[in-house]
Amino acid sequence: MKRLLLALALSLVPIAAGAVEPDEMLADPALEARAREISKDLRCVVCQNQDIDSSNAGVARDLRLLVRERLLAGGSDAEVIEFIRARYGDYVLLKPPLEPSTYALWFAPVALILFGLLAGVIVLSRNRKPEAVSALNEDDEKAVSEFLKRSDAGDAS
């Protein structure tokens, strides 16, 4: 029930556009571009699966401003992300950091491809043995051609 209520409450949040506003933007285009990139990797905590760059929620805007503030203060991209992460945890990172708990995630695609290729190689190597091409004997050949004739007659194509 509580979740239902929350879902209802959240559904009232408009998903209208216009996330980043001009007054948030930095004068330095290079810095602004970095801010945009960082924003795209940070998850908006009140919306569902949205980055803060495209969210118009209040908290997302605050975080965008914070990102820019930290950048202006001379922080590197990693430092800025770390600053936010220190307050909101790994949950805000849309790109999960490579840690023991995410090894399984990050290595899964590689493992899947390798596993698949291995399976493929096994299948192919099984097919190595020379193919026995034995022709049909006369009786069989006759049976088949008789059948084919019959089916040609039946099927007017």
Binding site: R43, Y91, L94
Partner: peptide, 16 residues
Amino acid sequence: ILEAVTGEKISVGPPF
């Protein structure tokens, strides 16, 4: 899966 195993909550987004 991670939440079930360790209780940690993470997000897997477009970058991944």
